[in-house]
Amino acid sequence: MKTGERQSAVSPDRLSHLKRLEAESVHIIREVAAEFRNPVMLYSIGKDSSVMLHLAMKAFYPSRPPFPLLHVDTTWKFREMIRFRDEAAERAGMRLIAHTNHAGVEAGITPFTHGSSTYTNIMKTEALKQALNEGRFDAAFGGARRDEEKSRAKERIFSFRTENHGWDPKNQRPELWNLYNARIRPGESIRVFPLSNWTELDIWQYILKEDIPIVPLYFAAPRPVVERDGQLIMVDDDRLPLRPGETPQTRVVRFRTLGCYPLTAAVESDASNLSEIVAETLVARTSERSGRLIDHDEQGSMEKKKREGYF
């Protein structure tokens, strides 16, 4: 194919692929607001959450989204994330519910003392269930995408949860066209994934096109890190116990995904603006979630966590 001869594949009367994705997400978000009594949007502060929040703003404009934001705060998030979270909720004019599993904090559960699996279960999965129960939410939006991981590729857009927040992957409701079945009994709930059909590249391109604010940690900058088990962990505060021989060193790094800082590896990169990030994504040879240590614990680990109520 000669590039010079190429015409744009999309005429003015056809929606580009990003426009189609945007319209699908907006439709999903509106369905939830119309059909559920008490929805909530899980806001994890990452780039996907930023896009999801932006889509919610679009869906209801000029009204505000008719639901609050919920952040499950493990107390181990990067400090820059918490700052960004509060600003984002303020900008959106939405109520922010920040929930921490205080019983877990009191029991001294940390990523170091209990291993990433137990820690995640107690400080994320359990905390999430507590928050959903306390708020009596019947629907919760999550920013997960099907291209992230194999069990997510199988999940419905409206994903049914039992009273105990469990997911039964072998018995999902059929989901045809854009007709979502929102019927549940009291205590049951639906997790809703408006970004199901987006890829990582779509997310970045949309952020670029719509000028959506994201946490500065995504951009390369000199940061204090230690190299541990082949991964770069940022020393975000003095709670990170250093192993013998470890000395924090300053390297130019950025994050492809954001979570709890002791469990989220940085990558060395010079990408300091959005175009450079997208360019880097195009040539990336390591998938996004590999920077998340929780997926590495065991085979099928995401599916297992999801069955237990994780997002």
């Binding site: 190429r6 594949a9 391109q205």
Partner: peptide, 12 residues
């Protein structure tokens, strides 16, 4: 790269 992004964004 700019051209690539443009093409990619307008893909069918």
């Amino acid at each position: 790269f700019e051209a690539y992004l443009d093409r990619h964004e307008n893909k069918d």
